[in-house]
Design a protein around this nucleic acid. Sequence first.
RNA 1: CGGGGCGUAGCGCAGCCUGGUAGCGCACUUGGUUCGGGACCAAGGGGUCGCAGGUUCAAAUCCUGUCGCCCCGACCA
Length: 506
Amino acid sequence: MSTQKITKTRAADYQDWYLQVVAAADLAENSDVKGCMVIKPWGYALWENVQRVLDGMFKDTGHSNAYFPLFIPLSYFAKEATHVEGFAKEMAVVTHHRLEMKDGKLEPAGKLEEPLVVRPTSETIIGASFAKWVQSYRDLPLLINQWANVVRWEMRTRLFLRTTEFLWQEGHTAHATPEEAVEETMKMLGVYATFAEDYMAMPVIQGEKTAGERFPGAVSTYCIEAMMQDRKALQAGTSHFLGQNFAKASGIQFSNDKNEIAFAWTTSWGVSTRLVGGMIMTHADDDGMVCPPRLAPKHVVIIPHLRVPEDRERVLAYCHALAAELRALRYDDAKLRVELDLRDLSPGDKKWEWVRKGVPIRLEVGGRDVDGAVAMFARRDKQADKPAPMPRDQIVGTMLATLEDIQRSLLERAKAFRAEHSKVIDTKEAFYEYFKEPAKKKPSDPTAIHAGFAWAHFNGDPALEAKIKDDLKVTVRCIPLEPGEPGTCPFTGEPSAKRVVWAKSY
RNA sequence: CGGGGCGUAGCGCAGCCUGGUAGCGCACUUGGUUCGGGACCAAGGGGUCGCAGGUUCAAAUCCUGUCGCCCCGACCA
């Protein structure tokens, strides 16, 4: 079992705190392969729940799953110029297909005629299939999703947030008209936003990326952006309108209803295991992980107190009965996930382990509780350490409402946090003041944490954005979809269509 | 690739400056005590001190080289 205590607070050392939570909640660990992580059962269970829910949402919106190769022929990958340029510096390349013993050492042999790249994303290889599958406008739209692993050889990695290999889903669709493709792009962005808020309890801003942050090869990139507890932004999902760029590169052509040959309009969209990192950084506290109920691997843990021998049997019987009663409930379209922890450990050890793992509700049961037909009840979001007695009937009767209340209050708490650390800014001076480099402060100073989200006007000039990034490490996270008033760019005095969201980001 | 830090028991670390042949906490095993509790007491198992070379009667400790990892930056979902 994991016994690590969390010794750092979010305010004192956010980075170390994050790593400690990941370790203490037994979510993942670094592997012997640099930059790659081992996702442990508790962390993987969170991801499986993400998968299960999203997969349902994709199917409800008409998509089908398929699977495409891990390897992409270099020539395929090279077909879309901007795409190659964007990913070239982070490619894993396979050049050999055999090992031979040479002077006692295994060495690569059997050089490939054409190198293969390990997919960093699959537009090009899926495009090759789409080109075969699409002949007529009657074959469109083509709505495909793939659950897969991808590899991007990043310079610096961080558990869940950026690993060399990561798990994700990538949707790829082809349409007869640009209007349909744009509609699909926006629809899936909406699916991500709904999922983030309703399931992860993580409030997000939907918006469009500026040219500088656009997906390589896309016409336009949309995203959901969330605020973490260090007030940095996390890009939690992206949806791209690819125009005809990839259709032309891959030859996705069809005959339209006027018997003319046309290139298809495509989209792609994805979310990754980064979402698990987002959940941690949105909800976890100084005692460890806090799982949003709808995605929690376990909803309820029951910890029996069995140290009094004469109580043992009846306490166990009571716990089993209580667990059975709870398991009969259905929460969020599935059986309530109840853990009765019978391991031969002290109740204190168990309790803190489940606190660190972030199980939404903890029930502790001893002889006295059996006598009074109660259980000691604690909800993770309110009181990690102070359970209070609650009648058994009431526990069972209010369980579903309680879980929903936790789900709701986590979202509310995160929304309030974001509101508290968002600011409307109208002058360049105020903007620079807001984001002034906090690194010179001592880490123990809470204001050393990054300022937050700034809502400011912007004339859209990429050079200006680059300069601000250079000066402050702050970028436009997105141009929000929500309606906004025109105004004046505080940096140039030029007109601006609406305010954009500026922040430091992961 | 730049800057910083670190490799000593499963994990976290001390010892290194001032060489004398390895220790602490947690975890683990056993026995006992305790029993609404991240317990306590006692005993026990576990390490060629990252690797290689050098200096020395003697190296975890000094010297040289080398490998690896972590954190901060540049790159990025």
